[in-house]
């Protein structure tokens, strides 16, 4: 007989805009767990996750009626990003660089192939946002740690082929930093087809 099952998220948002604490409680009950689990995975810290969920809902209450929320899960997802980022900045969390340093080995995930794709996408997106000068240094940094022999061994191809590929790639990167992102995305599509 309670209204929990009958009210849509949108109904609840409208009621919250009108000041209904009850609707707010129901919306919390409906969504907190998903947000908490996501924040917990993203931050690796249940206490911080708790704060994130609290802050997301506190914002929702404080800004009630002031925002045009048409898609509640999308709104909450974005709010979660904002609050998680607050924590990352506040704690000077450099886990992103751990990922880069270890080439994703620090990540926890069963499906490794999916992860590689995501990681590749992330690195290409990172290169795209680096200032031009840093961009070249960053890319070269990665190059420098790889010998052509290592690459050849891992790919099961000849060292000569790798050298040719690298040479082409290096020239390409140097000439086309601005177009790096689309190029990488194309490659990603190619890899996933294979």
């Amino acid at each position: 007989m309670s209204c929990e099952s009958t009210n849509t998220d949108q109904d609840l948002i409208n009621q919250i805009a009108a000041g209904s604490e009850e609707a707010f409680g129901i919306l919390f009950q409906r969504h907190w767990e998903r947000l908490y689990l996501s924040a917990s995975r993203k931050l690796g810290d249940p206490e911080l996750a708790r704060e994130v969920v609290h802050d997301v809902f506190m914002d929702l209450w404080r800004l009630r009626g002031q925002r045009d929320i048409t898609n509640v899960p999308a709104y909450l997802g974005k709010a979660l990003y904002n609050r998680v980022i607050n924590k990352l900045v506040g704690k000077k969390d450099t886990y992103f660089f751990d990922i880069l340093e270890t080439h994703g080995q620090s990540l926890y995930e069963a499906d490794q192939s999916l992860l590689e794709k995501d990681l590749l996408g992330l690195i290409s997106a990172w290169i795209a946002v680096l200032p031009e000068r840093r961009r070249e240094i960053f890319v070269r940094h990665y190059f420098d740690h790889l010998t052509t022999q290592e690459i050849a061994d891992s790919m099961g191809i000849s060292q000569k082929t790798v050298q040719n590929q690298l040479s082409i790639a290096t020239q390409y990167l140097r000439a086309n930093y601005g177009h790096l992102l689309p190029a990488l995305l194309l490659m990603q599509a190619f890899i996933s087809k294979k």
């Binding site: 270890t102 080439h103 990665y142 690459i151 390409y172 490659m187």
Partner: peptide, 21 residues
């Protein structure tokens, strides 16, 4: 280039991040 990037995702060498980055 394609080979190279696939490779780095599996590579284990630690790269120290730059403060500027």
């Amino acid at each position: 280039m394609f080979f190279f990037l696939v490779y780095i995702t599996k590579h284990q060498v630690v790269i120290t991040p730059d403060q500027e980055d």
